[in-house]
Design a binder for these strands. Structure first.
Length: 375
RNA sequence: GGAGGGGUGGGAGAGUGGUUAAAUCCACCAGACUGUAAAUCUGGCCGCAUUGCGUACGUUGGUUCGAAUCCAACCCCCUCCA
C-alpha cells in the first residue's frame, strides 16, 4: 500500500488549523484529543463508550504493556487493537514519559533506559530500538521515538545534553522503525529543549533532518505553568513543518488545549479527563467542579441537560455525589465518561470555529463561560 | 438478687500519674492531579483568638505539685449465674 498515513489541512485560522489524519484504521479529525489508555484500557470506560464520546484514537503505553502482559504476549493475542477491542487508530508512547515519572526506578545511559519494574522489581532495558520493536509488536498505528522527558526547571546545559540525547535516540528510533515498522504504521519524533527557545528550534531542525511523519512537542506541562508553556509554543510551532501533524504530548486541561490549538497544535493527550473523573472532578461548560462537594448533595440537575452523552444528561449531580460518597464504581465511570465527552465536544467546537474562521470568538466565549484567563 | 466486665472526641478504638487537645481507622469538610506506579495523594476536623486561652475522657467529690489514668459514692451499659 502506498503511504497509508497522510495529513491534510482543511482550513486555518491564524496559526490554528483543522484537518484530517488518515490511517488504515480510520480518520482522525484534528485538532484531536486522544484519551489515554496506558494499560490497554481507558480506565473505567468501555471501548464502545470511548468511541461514542467522539474519540478517533486512543493511547497505549510501551513501558506498562511491556511489563504486563508483555509485548510478545499481546502480539500473540492478535495485537493491542484486538486485545482491547478498539479497532481504530492507537498511538503508543515510547516509555519516554516514564523516564521522568519513574525517575527513581531507572538508570539512563546512551544506550537506553534500564528500569526496575515497579511491579516485581525485575530489570528491563528499554533502548530506542526495543521501544520501537515493542510498539510494532503491539501494532500501534502511530509510534513515538524514545526520548528523555526532563522536568522543568532544568539548567540550560543539562537541557541541551538531554535534548541532544533525545535527538540521537530519534535517529536510532527511525532506523529501528525502518526495520520493524509495518505498512500503515508511522513514527513521530519528539521535540525537546525544556523552556529554552533556541534549544527547541535546534531540536526541531535535528528532527527535520532525520525526517518524521509527525512532530511532537514533549517535555511541557512539567512544572513550568500555562503561561510559560504557551510562550515556548510561540517559539516552537512556527519552525515546525506546516504540512505534518503537531502533537503536544500530555496536555492538558481544557484551557491549555484551547491556547495550544491557537498556536498551531493538532493533537493532544492527557490523563486529566480520566484521572480527574475518577477523583470526582468534572469539567462543565461553566468551569470545573468537584462533584464530591457537599453543595451538590441535593442538586437534582444533571451536569449538562443538553448533552448527547448519557453520563452528562441522565444522572443528577446529587446522584453522582452519592455514588462518590458511597465509593461506588459507577461514580468514577460516569464522571470519566462525562469528561471525555466534554473534551471531545470541545475539540469538535474548536474544529468548527477554525473552519469558519471564528476561533477568536470561540476563545472569548470559552474564557467568559469558564472564567479561565486565556493568553 | 449474686458474680464479673465496662463507660474516652460524630462512630469504632488506643491510652492506666506529667512529654495528652488525647494514637489509629472510619465518617465528615476542602484541595491537588497535565505523553497514568493514581478508584490516588494532601490538608482540616472541641470552641474562640495572632504564638495563646478556655473547656474536655459517664456524674460528683477526693488523693496529688500534677488525674482520662489512683480512691470513694452515685448513674448507666454488657456477660454469666439465679
Amino acid at each position: 500500500m502506498a503511504n497509508a498515513f497522510s495529513f491534510h489541512i482543511d482550513a486555518a485560522d491564524g496559526r490554528a488549523r483543522t484537518g484530517v489524519i488518515k490511517t488504515p484504521r480510520g480518520d482522525i479529525a484534528t485538532p484531536a484529543f486522544m484519551p489515554v489508555g496506558t494499560a490497554g484500557t481507558v480506565k473505567a470506560m468501555l471501548s464502545e463508550h470511548v468511541r461514542a464520546t467522539g474519540a478517533d484514537i486512543v493511547l497505549g503505553n510501551t513501558y506498562h504493556l511491556m511489563l504486563r502482559p508483555g509485548a510478545e504476549e499481546v502480539a500473540a493475542l492478535g495485537g493491542l487493537h484486538r486485545f482491547m477491542n478498539w479497532p481504530r487508530p492507537i498511538l503508543t508512547d515510547s516509555g519516554g514519559f516514564q523516564v521522568m515519572s519513574l525517575s527513581n526506578l531507572r538508570k539512563l545511559t546512551e544506550k537506553g533506559v534500564s528500569f526496575q519494574s515497579h511491579l516485581d522489581g525485575s530489570k528491563h532495558l528499554l533502548t530506542p530500538e526495543r521501544s520501537i520493536e515493542i510498539q510494532c509488536l503491539l501494532g500501534a498505528d502511530i509510534q513515538m521515538q524514545l526520548d528523555e522527558c526532563p522536568a522543568i526547571p532544568i539548567e540550560k546545559e543539562a537541557a541541551r545534553e538531554s535534548m541532544l540525547l533525545s535527538a540521537r535516540w530519534a535517529e536510532r528510533s527511525k532506523a529501528a522503525f525502518e526495520q520493524f515498522g509495518a505498512p500503515g504504521q508511522t513514527l513521530f519524533g519528539i521535540v525537546q529543549g525544556a523552556n529554552y527557545d533556541d534549544l527547541r528550534v535546534e531540536s526541531v531542525e535535528r528532527l527535520i533532518d532525520i525526517g518524521f511523519e509527525g512532530y511532537a512537542v514533549g517535555g511541557l506541562a512539567v512544572g513550568e505553568g500555562r503561561e510559560e508553556m504557551l510562550r515556548v509554543l510561540d517559539g516552537t510551532t512556527p519552525v515546525m513543518p506546516r504540512e505534518k501533524p503537531r502533537y503536544l504530548m500530555g496536555v492538558g486541561k481544557p484551557a491549555d488545549i484551547v491556547g495550544a490549538v491557537a498556536r498551531g497544535i493538532d493533537m493532544f493527550d492527557c490523563v486529566a479527563p480520566t484521572r480527574s473523573g475518577r477523583h470526582g472532578q468534572a469539567w462543565t461548560t461553566a468551569g470545573a467542579i468537584n462533584i464530591k462537594n457537599a453543595r451538590f448533595a441535593k442538586d437534582d440537575t444533571p451536569l449538562d441537560a443538553d448533552s448527547a452523552c448519557p453520563a452528562s444528561r441522565d444522572y443528577s449531580k446529587a446522584y453522582l455525589n452519592h455514588l462518590f460518597k458511597a465509593g461506588e464504581y459507577l461514580g468514577p465511570m460516569l464522571l470519566t465518561w462525562h469528561n471525555l465527552h466534554y473534551y471531545q465536544q470541545l475539540m469538535a467546537d474548536l474544529r468548527a470555529a477554525i473552519a469558519r474562521g471564528a476561533l477568536q470568538d470561540f476563545i472569548t466565549k470559552f474564557s467568559d463561560e469558564t472564567g479561565e484567563t486565556l493568553l
